[in-house]
């Protein structure tokens, strides 16, 4: 097994895991559970003793911490770093905490970048946690406030930092919200794609770009923090 796994045994077995330095796009239509998949991956990472940085454009840091407090102990939660792009953009003033740092708004790419770097330094260098993941949930929201070239430059820098740090990066993109050109531009940065879809009743997932061929589509449900793969296609 390679350096990282996604914590979904049926999938990790086929792909053989995720090599360090990999940047993955988590792509799918709205309401297919991408958001919970990210939380599952973070939960799994923390349980492995590693650390996670989550850039959140939807939920506030407090909401995310409260959610995780149901599943993780305090020590475990101290290995999560949240870059909250929401709270300050609502005009609420608040100072950085150990587990939550605040960017001014989703427009503030400079600030978001600084906070990511600070968590990387804290986890990888200061606390000597060898493995870390970076999740951006979501790239689509960032794109609402900025154009694709600007976001590409930002992601170009941070996918590079992920490689350099030997981390992995997972970037949430909503399918159907952007034109094909934008999606293709973004795909240049992400050698692997974690794809989800729905047939109206059930959700399915597959992974491209890890291992020699795409994994077959797997039916899945999310139960709390666990991703449960259902038998059959």
């Amino acid at each position: 097994m390679l350096d990282y796994s996604l914590g979904i045994p049926e999938v990790d077995e086929i792909t053989g895991g995720v090599p360090k330095g990999t940047n993955i796009m988590l792509l799918g239509p709205p309401l297919t559970g991408k958001h919970l998949l990210i939380r599952h991956i973070i939960y799994h990472t923390i349980k492995e003793g590693d650390s996670a940085v989550l850039v959140s454009t939807r939920d506030t840091g407090d909401e995310i911490i409260e959610w995780f407090s149901e599943y993780l102990e305090e020590e475990e939660r101290s290995r999560i770093g949240i870059v909250d792009c929401v709270t300050k953009s609502l005009g609420k003033n608040i100072h950085d905490k150990d587990v939550v740092k605040y960017a001014s708004s989703p427009v503030d790419l400079t600030g978001i970048g600084i906070k990511i770097s600070q968590f990387f330094e804290e986890f990888i260098r200061r606390r000597q946690i060898p493995k870390t993941i970076l999740c951006i949930d979501s790239v689509s929201t960032l794109l609402m406030y900025t154009n694709i070239q600007t976001l590409f430059r930002f992601l170009h820098v941070f996918t590079g930092r992920v490689k350099l740090a030997g981390a992995i990066g997972i970037y949430v993109v909503d399918e159907g919200m952007h034109d094909d050109k934008s999606i293709n531009t973004l795909k240049q940065l992400f050698p692997a794609v974690f794809e989800v879809k729905t047939d109206g009743e059930e959700n399915h997932l597959r992974i491209l770009g890890l291992g020699s061929k795409p994994t077959p589509w797997k039916r899945y449900e999310i139960d709390g923090v666990e991703v449960v793969i259902k038998s059959g296609e």
């Binding site: 953009s89 005009g91 003033n93």
Partner: peptide
Amino acid sequence: LSSDPQIFREEFMS
């Protein structure tokens, strides 16, 4: 351009 004016003013306080 990327920060609410009031939030920017409060940066000084921090």
